[in-house]
Design a protein around this nucleic acid. Structure first.
Lengths: 194, 194, 194, 194
DNA sequence: TATGAATGAGCGTTCATTCAT
DNA sequence: CATGAATGAACGCTCATTCAT
């Protein structure tokens, strides 16, 4: 499997760095190859084309979020705790990899429609897990029984996303992790049964 | 003042149409010129460069949101009512101009970092007005006294934005306006004093 | 009409020179542009793509052969005389433009299948006129009544073509024009009624 | 001698198949290697470079024509009979190996000048034998004493070549072998003493 | 001998911007 | 003011060849 080979990972990581430091439109294949320490042509032994590199970046990195979230789901937590863990984890991963934060929040959004659709497919897996949490919360009576799950999901994700984007745009100069409890409170207030 | 001349407006409107119908990356200057019914070179009598056209698009159209929001602020409404009017107005404008919705929610986000920063400057005026509403709500005791205004603003805007983007991505096939009350309820639940 | 503009002709002529001097596979668009004294991009104001340049070269130059042959057909000549004029004209044109001779006999034949099909369409016009001459000769009894016109045409064109190609491959070091009577005699011997 | 090893022949045959089925410009070394069932690098143990493969294809296959023609020359035949056998043999070999016909008549002609010169060297052996037949015919008085041997050879080969190419281009959909007598008659009419 | 992963030079085409008319 | 022909820089991808194993 190509994805397990060391050069595959090296190229994906190089792409994150190059995109973060140069911007999406200045991330030429040759720059990524140089950063990865391979020849231009080597890229094409592991990726079909440039778009494939970018989708892979998103897929590989998003896998971390999804896998963490699955671990959270398996624990014996109530909905509020799960949502907190989710927010905290989301913030934590991007807080730890600042290059990745720039890429996911700013640069990858500049991609064309086609690429964005493929990115959304990957994102869907994550949002589906969020739906599971929300539905469970509604079932157990922790969350408002009358609300629309899709809208609730958009509110949760929209708030998280907007918070992180804002942090990235302010050059990550304050502590994102400290915002987790407050974001969690805002969200829970919005969703809680009453 | 150039901005008042008829060709200026014609070019801005042409840009919205061309971007919506062709996508950001297929919106060449020559296409915009053709749609506006002027020669390529004429564009440069009214705009410094291509980026200037796009910023102008955003500035001219955002002015509608800002001006509407100012009118709302001047009315004698409580915070919850104001937020509802704001959400409803935001939804209404984009509901009425589907080209514009595509441009603001999808296409313009594909622009480079530099352009995005300039767009954010324009957006700031709108967000500042939102801050005014929120602060007033906190002062009057309608909203939670302990919450961070910046986070609250991100939650409000993030939820609205995510809802609209989701609607656009689903080809605007359901009625966005009908979602306003539910979105308002979710947001108010999150912000309300308790 | 683009084909009448001076730059169109300049580019076509430049292409002939560049291909003749550098070979088909070394005739880059930028080289042709330089030879024509225009910018690379200018090429694309007059031609759809590189293939279009090459087809145009063939079409423009082949037009000379066709037009000359039409003039010959209009004269009051017998079949033998017409065939001689045709051979002589064919030799003469390529004798006068040695670059063109290299291009048509050697370089253009290296083009891919798609381009070759388009070239053959152009060539067809010329071969159709040859068919007219041959059919007329058969009707008037000058040529062998029993022979297959298609084969006869292939023999006439194959002989002419092979003779010129051989001359070009020998660096055009002998006088091609002097071969016309002998080639004519060979061909007429093959076709003549007996 | 490398040429006798089984892998050498396997690679040459693979090249014919790959070129015929994919076209000259799509006949990558790696494709030939795959078809031959060897690794890419193995090719370079038997051939200096890609051009060497292609020249070898032509040399190996042309050897069949030459050897057959030599057999014909050794028989006790008059010139007309020899020319018929030659035409018939030429048609027969390509009629039997349709891949080879495509390669020699269409694909290999797309090669660059350098390769074409080397191919012509190989072809020379065949044309020299044709010269022998023609000179003998002139000596014995069967053929026209006054004609130029080189031109005569070009007429014979040009006619044969043009006929086969035409047949290949028409997807080999009529019976090439049946054309031999008529082609022979046309040629003999051209060459015969009178 | 045989392998096949790695190399890296090379090129057609687009499009924002200019400027002579 | 308005035009639109001309400019030229910039880049993703292929594939013949090499060489460590």
């Amino acid at each position: 499997m190509k994805r397990d080979k060391p050069k595959y990972k090296k190229i994906v990581d190089a792409a994150v760095v190059v995109i973060a430091e140069n911007g999406y439109h200045q991330a030429q294949v040759s720059k990524i190859a140089k950063e990865a320490g391979v020849a231009d042509g080597t890229i094409y032994l592991y990726f079909k084309n440039k778009e494939d590199i970018l989708v892979s970046v998103f897929r590989e990195k998003m896998a971390i979020f999804v896998s963490n979230l699955q671990t959270i789901l398996e624990k014996d937590l109530n909905t509020s705790e799960m949502l907190f863990k989710m927010i905290d984890n989301h913030f934590f991963v991007l807080h730890e990899d600042r290059h990745l934060a720039i890429v996911t929040q700013l640069e990858l959004r500049q991609s064309g429609k086609k690429l964005r659709l493929r990115i959304n497919e990957v994102l869907k897996e994550y949002l589906d897990l969020l739906d599971v949490i929300l539905k469970e919360g509604i079932d157990t009576g922790e969350l408002d029984q009358t609300m629309d799950v899709r809208l609730a999901r958009q509110m949760v994700f929209g708030t998280i996303d907007e918070t992180i984007t804002s942090w990235v745009m302010n050059d990550q100069k304050y502590d994102l992790l400290k915002l987790a409890p407050e974001v969690h409170r805002l969200i829970m207030n919005g969703l809680r049964a009453r």
